[in-house]
């Protein structure tokens, strides 16, 4: 997260979620959207597997799912969707301009792509980011590695912070 990041989002319960929240404990960030049935469920179940591999240490990290599609992903939709994988995963949405600001400060990309049927889909950053307790990106998770490897990366970060 860039210095001076300024945005205000909503977590899945409707409470404010701001850059300050990223300065309390390490965060695992996944970007996606709930109308994405192929890639996003794979990422979120990987996060769920990682939390499981962490055991009680999972409490020390915040698993975050940030939508790139705030138009369709309301707080309720985000809550329902993230619970499908692990109730500990926190869905975050917000006003489109605030989402854009947050994505930019986290170095993530998204683009709306219209479909022939009048609907749309979203291209988006698929990398899962691991932020330290100051919100700074420290590492990325790779879906092709076992969740135990991801848990190892998180443990390493927890030891340092």
């Amino acid at each position: 997260m860039a210095e001076g990041a300024d945005w205000r989002l909503l977590d899945e319960t409707g409470s404010a979620f701001t850059p300050d929240h990223l300065r309390t404990k390490p965060t695992l960030v996944v970007f996606g959207f709930t109308h994405c049935p192929d890639v996003c469920p794979t990422s979120l179940s990987y996060v769920a597997g990682t939390l499981q591999a962490l055991g009680p240490q999972a409490e020390a990290v915040r698993p975050l799912f940030v939508t790139v599609d705030p138009e369709r992903d309301t707080t309720d939709v985000m809550a329902e969707y993230t619970d499908l994988f692990d109730p500990r995963i926190i869905g975050v949405t917000g006003a489109p301009d605030q989402i854009s600001a947050a994505l930019k400060s986290l170095g993530a990309y998204s683009r709306k792509v219209p479909q022939d049927d009048g609907g749309y889909t979203m291209d988006h950053t698929a990398t899962m980011l691991l932020l330290d307790d100051q919100g700074r990106p420290r590492s990325t998770l790779d879906i092709h590695e076992k969740p135990e490897v991801a848990a190892g990366k998180i443990r390493l970060l927890l030891e340092k912070s």
Binding site: V39, Y109, Q115, D117, D123, T125
Partner: peptide, 19 residues
Amino acid sequence: SHAMAHQTRQENDVSRMSE
């Protein structure tokens, strides 16, 4: 209502889904 063939591609770090 609809069922159609889709393709997901990963280019660099970006995931794209298309028909």
